Simulated assay, not measured.
Amino acid sequence: MNMRFLLKGFEVELFTGSFTGKNVGVAASVTEDLSEFVIEPDQRNLEFITSPERQYSVLREALLSPRRKLRKWLAQRNLTILPGSTLSLGNSNYFERSDPLNPYHELIENTYGTDVVTSSVHINLGIEDSSILFAALRLIRCESALFLALSASSPFLDGRSTGVHSQRWIQFPKTPKQVPLFVNHDHYVSWFKTQLDKGIMWNERHFWSSVRPNGDRRPHDLNRLEIRICDLITDCDLLLAVTALIELRILTLIHGVEQLDPLEVSNLNVNELALLSDLNDIAAAKTSIDSTLNHWVDGKSIKCRDWIEELLESVSPLAMEMDMIETLKPIQHVLNNGNQAIQWLDRYSHGESIEALIQQSISSMEQEESTTHQDIS
């Protein structure tokens, strides 16, 4: 196919806290000293953004370097980076403002409360051709449940098990509540302006969906696809594997839009596809890779694990051509051994405390950063 890698970047949200696993908010102080981090409305978490890159080897270091800097800053205050995408041992009964004078933060707190106090990773892939961008948007939205299933890491909240694998996606206020499957750029622009005119969306940033088009001047100037559904993936190799699977799907789409664009292939209409995708996302949030979903091609039920296996098989020839087989391997490990949420819940069911699970994962994150740094040196 002679494909070229897409530009890729990440927006990574992280929780901070004590080595016991308790959330401690220090985002405002961090951003005063570390310029690569930005605050979120609640100061118990913060965010860093990587620069667009094509090569996975470069992306790995781009993901780990800010974590090392943050960890060093936190260690001087006897604090650390916390795994998971919800306030696992925190207190969701109150909002801890990072900027008390910010009116936008006040609006978020008053409207949503701590439902928005989560951490995640947003995966951005550069696509400048409008027709390809919206075809990719349709495809990845119809398959977004699979990427949530692989990433699920939020089964706990306020020191208890919630009964789901991604409490983050269950509680996070998707806005607007109903988003169509956009047929083209004009459809998107028209819909976007309607949401603003009706006050459903407050501004261009207030579009919180599983997947969205993005760019420097939304909704007009667009140059990338942003996948927002994934929980925080602390294992960088798994994050890169999920990204690689998405990229390979998009590259395959570019090679033959008529074979992968849901508008061209599915037996369902656009309204049915939008509803199916939303229901799949919720099903994946509840039981992740153990869930039963409905396929966008024909609406028939399919096991999440089987669907992911199908995707891996479908991209295998291109992955071999682009030397990405090794990059994809962590996905098979998740299918065999479970994602973060499943592993945590299994150990929790055998008597381990949430505190012990979080503390062990803190050590695993630190070890990944330390080992990688030594290897590169």
Rank of each mutant, 00 (worst) to 15 (best):
K8A: 05
G17W: 10
G21M: 14
G21N: 04
T31S: 07
L34H: 15
E36R: 07
I39R: 07
I49N: 12
S57G: 13
R60V: 02
L74W: 00
Q76I: 02
T80P: 06
N91C: 12
S92C: 06
R97W: 07
S98I: 06
D99N: 04
L101D: 09
H105N: 08
L107I: 09
V116H: 08
V117P: 13
V121K: 03
I123G: 10
D129L: 14
A145H: 09
F147A: 00
A152N: 05
L157M: 13
Q167D: 15
K174Q: 06
Q178R: 03
L181D: 11
F182A: 06
N184A: 14
D186P: 11
Y188F: 13
Q195A: 08
V211H: 01
R212P: 09
P219H: 06
L225T: 13
L225V: 14
C230F: 10
D237L: 10
V242E: 00
R249P: 11
E258L: 06
P262Q: 01
S266P: 06
N271G: 11
I282A: 14
A284R: 03
S288E: 14
T292V: 12
R305S: 10
D323M: 00
L328A: 04
I331P: 06
I331S: 08
Q343R: 09
D346T: 03
R347A: 07
E366M: 09
S377Y: 09
